[in-house]
Amino acid sequence: MNASALPNFDRLLDLARNSPEELERLRLEMTNQILDSTPDQGVRLRLEQLAFRIDAERRRGRTPLSLCLHYSNLMHRQLGVLNQELHKLLQPVVLPCQTGDNHNQPARTSAKIIPFSRYQKPA
């Protein structure tokens, strides 16, 4: 079976029912293919850690439905973390001078703004 393309659902269901060893071989093959095609070592390390965690959860002997719910909860927690980080990035930066805390801040000075259209190069 070609590891570069995921078989359709009916084929995967057939493998799960009739040939779980073949399904496991396909899973490992596709996991290794993804890891091998990841050029960034930091990303690859995180993917290897995730694959290890998934394998450890599978070895705990849970039922398939229980594993599905567990993985779904893990993904939702990670999405929550990513969502929080995204919101942090999207928050406006508040400078100390904007909060009214002007302690140890240099005094503001005014500046004359000269439009480029009126700017003359010195001779």
Rank of each mutant, 00 (worst) to 15 (best):
M1Q: 05
N2C: 01
A5T: 07
N8P: 00
F9G: 00
F9V: 06
A16Y: 15
R17K: 11
P20F: 11
P20C: 06
P20A: 07
E22L: 08
E24I: 03
L26D: 01
R27N: 05
L28M: 07
E29G: 00
M30E: 06
T31S: 09
T31I: 10
N32E: 15
N32M: 09
Q33I: 03
L35S: 02
D36R: 12
S37P: 00
T38M: 13
Q41I: 07
V43I: 09
R44F: 14
R46Q: 12
R46W: 08
Q49T: 03
Q49M: 11
L50K: 05
R53L: 11
D55H: 12
E57N: 07
R58S: 05
R59D: 11
R60P: 00
R60M: 14
R62L: 15
T63E: 13
C68F: 15
L69T: 04
L69D: 06
H70V: 02
H70L: 15
Y71F: 15
Y71Q: 07
S72A: 10
N73W: 14
M75N: 05
H76Q: 12
R77W: 14
R77A: 10
G80K: 04
Q84D: 14
Q84W: 11
H87L: 14
K88N: 10
K88A: 15
Q91P: 00
V93R: 03
V94P: 00
V94N: 06
L95M: 12
L95S: 05
P96I: 04
P96H: 10
C97V: 07
Q98Y: 15
Q98H: 14
T99I: 04
D101K: 07
N102V: 05
H103A: 11
N104L: 09
Q105M: 12
Q105I: 04
P106H: 09
A107P: 00
T109C: 04
T109H: 13
A111L: 10
I114R: 03
F116R: 10
K121C: 03
P122F: 14
